[in-house]
Amino acid sequence: MTGFLAALGRPVLAVLAAFGRVALYAVQTLASLVRPPFYTREFLAALLHVGWLSLPVVGLTAIFTGGALALQIYAGGQRFNAEAVVPQIVAIGMVRELGPVLVGLMIAARVTSSIAAEIATMKVTEQIDALVTLSTNPLKYLTVPRVLAGTLTVPLLVAVGDIIGIMGGFLVATGQLGFNKATYIQNTLDFLESADVVSSLIKGAVFGCIATLIGCYHGMASGRGAMGVGQATKTAVAAASILILAANFLLTSVMFGS
């Protein structure tokens, strides 16, 4: 019995300890954010990498999702003569849920993995130690610019993803399902509320922060050698994806639960 409890307790303690370490890392990052120096060049590079270069993958994910959503809603709506709600449901579905979550997951796949692999490689090749010996705090130089860039650019990516997703639904609905173009747009605009858009942007900021922070944390905590880099990357993507989905549930509960 004692052995069973110990076996059960070990992974629970390990998970709690990991949460504690990530939380401490987040606090240190936040504290570093408000203390100089600030590395502008690294921040601009991170903006480009996290934001601009993620646009193609975000756009493609959103347009296909919006199109598929329109088809599903139309097919499902037909069962109870509600196929006319396609514009409204595509809009609300994309803006409130699918846009932020899919962009968050795409960022976890594209950005978290590359950040974790890059920083882990830097650790394995002693570049992190070299930074320290060059009087540069790795947290300020590597983590702060990336986390700030993620928190600021992912909401914009989510906004772009929302618009492209709605456009995907529009293209399918008007091209394939016989909807009138002007009516579709009017219904979308009439139905969406500013709270929907704000919630989408807030989710984007939280997901961007999670994706970049987790990438940096696992990169810094990487083990030795190529296996350590691989493990850090894999763990970072899995952890970021799960945390994004969990945060999405929490944020939806807080913002729309009542």
Binding site: A45, M122, T125, E126, Q127, D129, A130, V132, T133, L134, S135
Partner: peptide, 19 residues
């Protein structure tokens, strides 16, 4: 910072910043 400013180090693998 003042302490580290007194040091220079050559690492085994160079540890040059790739980017």
């Amino acid at each position: 910072e003042a302490f580290l400013a007194r040091f220079g180090m050559l690492f085994q693998g160079g540890a040059l910043f790739d980017s």
